[in-house]
Design a protein around this nucleic acid. Sequence first.
DNA 1: TATAAGCTTAGAGCTGACTCTAAGGTCAAC
DNA 2: GTTGACCTTAGAGTCAGCTCTAAGCTTATA
Lengths: 142, 142
Amino acid sequence: MLKISELAAKTGLSAHTIRFYEKHDLIRASERSEAGYRYYNDSDIRRAEFVKTARNIGFSLEDISQLLSIRVDKTSHSCQEVTDITQHKLDEVNEKLSELESMQNTLQILLKSCCGGPEKATHCSIIEALDAGAVVKNRSAA
Amino acid sequence: MLKISELAAKTGLSAHTIRFYEKHDLIRASERSEAGYRYYNDSDIRRAEFVKTARNIGFSLEDISQLLSIRVDKTSHSCQEVTDITQHKLDEVNEKLSELESMQNTLQILLKSCCGGPEKATHCSIIEALDAGAVVKNRSAA
DNA sequence: TATAAGCTTAGAGCTGACTCTAAGGTCAAC
DNA sequence: GTTGACCTTAGAGTCAGCTCTAAGCTTATA
């Protein structure tokens, strides 16, 4: 049985965050001391680590909530539900990736165009490009 | 001279957003009608388009604020200041890109591992992987 | 002249994921 | 028995960038 600070040390989450996750039903403390202190048993700890892993991968708290409800009652859910959540997340990631790649591209072009020196910015090609509408299609579907 | 809704149409920003940007000193209406209506002259319009372009590229409002102050007084600023802002943004973008690539990678691996069918999730390999701590180093330096 | 569309403001609300505060109770060590 | 670290709660604050609301003027059109 771990106390909250011990679970925090074990998972790398802060005690604040653990309480916050509890509010959102992601992490549970099966027991409480008489004084109200949270105590985490092995099952709670595994659940907390599941949450941490999913969070590390990039799932939202809402996604994790769904994954958890599948995890606790696997027979009532299908693999498809799990892959749907995962695929949806992957789609999001891919979308953000292409936005960021576009930004990267534009920024690199801008940087190449400018001397970057101590010269006055009177003819700075970055400022000029922005003035001219140096648009590469970003943020299209943010 | 454009009214706010006309500037909105021209830039693709909403009137709400234009007012919001004005609050943050990004966009200006040089004139006001007697009734208080905003009127944008050519210089205001160019400034608004500069803002829109910078925003499209992915610069934060704070970045844009700095870029604008360079733009309005180029002789007091150097190209280096401009490239510093741009390089800093590129660094940010690169960092996010590598996080997202890592997520993409993990999600793809998870998806490949699971049948995704209507089977009960009893042995779902995604859930199992999350339980086992399927960590690929994401979010390390978010 | 009446109606509708458009404009004004200050300020609140939204998103997601924390992060912190205040005010107080508990516990272990010395 | 007292210090100090740790725990509790509800609720507020943070970030960025909008987005919307309410209440009331103004302007253009029919």
